[in-house]
Simulated assay, not measured.
Amino acid sequence: MIDSPVGPIMLTSDGAHLTGLYLEVTDAVLARVAAASGTEPETNDDLTVFADTEAQLGEYFAGHRRGFDLPLAPHGTEFQRSVWQGLLEIPYGSTANYGELAEAVGRPKAARAVGAANGKNPISIIVPCHRVIGANGSLTGYAWGEDKKRRLLTLESHP
Rank of each mutant, 00 (worst) to 15 (best):
T12N: 00
S13L: 07
A16V: 03
A16W: 04
G20W: 04
L21K: 02
Y22L: 00
Y22F: 14
Y22N: 08
T26E: 09
A28Q: 14
V29A: 10
R32C: 01
R32I: 00
A35V: 06
G38K: 08
E42A: 08
E42P: 01
L47S: 06
L47K: 02
T48L: 09
T48M: 03
T48W: 01
A51C: 07
D52K: 12
D52C: 05
T53D: 09
E54H: 08
A55Y: 06
A55C: 02
A55P: 04
G58L: 09
G58V: 07
Y60A: 02
R65N: 05
G67H: 11
P71Q: 12
L72F: 01
A73T: 01
G76L: 05
F79M: 03
F79W: 08
F79Q: 10
V83E: 08
Q85R: 12
L87V: 03
E89R: 13
G93T: 08
T95M: 09
N97R: 05
L101S: 04
P108Y: 13
A110S: 14
R112C: 02
V114P: 05
V114H: 00
G115A: 04
A117F: 13
K120Q: 12
K120I: 00
N121L: 04
P122K: 03
I125C: 04
P128F: 03
P128W: 04
R131I: 00
A135T: 07
G137T: 00
G141N: 15
G141F: 07
Y142K: 12
A143L: 12
G145S: 13
E146V: 15
D147G: 12
K148G: 13
R150V: 15
R151C: 07
L155T: 14
L155C: 10
S157R: 14
H158Q: 14
H158W: 07
P159F: 07
